[in-house]
Amino acid sequence: MDEQTQVPPGLIHFAAMDQILDLARANSLWPMTFGLACCAIEMMATGAARFDMARFGCEVFRPSPRQSDVMIVCGTINKKMAPAVVTLYDQMPEPKWVIAMGNCAISGGPFVFPGQYNVVEGVDKLFPVDVYIPGCPPRPEALIEGFLELEKKLTGKRRWPVAKAQ
């Protein structure tokens, strides 16, 4: 590259733009409607009247992976289901994030024993995970906390104060 075509440093800033985009993304996370097992019921409860995920901008559950940017893996993945889950993950457009909700998605949970033949021991064996939410099932509050963590991961700031222990 010669002198002429080189862009002088400091002329174009992507960082500010990125920050704005991150803020926008963090405040409108669209999860995919995708229930695998018990934890999915708690996910439904989180979206419904009492816990109301809409307060955090992440209530727009999309049935299609092409329209969503967060995959909440809520439940047990078994060997028959694993290829389908991977397909769904691959179909999601970038940027995308994954929340592993519940012990099953983290490690296989209660279904791991010597000689087990059917459960995938953790969704991170299939694709990378951003936030892990432990519990069997995690409470809806925990899922909300998981979303706040994901937002923090995106923007670097936590928008909600951490509740103090009583």
């Binding site: 078994n78 279904f111 033949y117």
Partner: peptide, 11 residues
């Protein structure tokens, strides 16, 4: 079916 098979009977 079988996408939710979790080996309960084996366990």
């Amino acid at each position: 079916i079988g996408y939710g098979h979790r080996m309960h009977e084996k366990m």
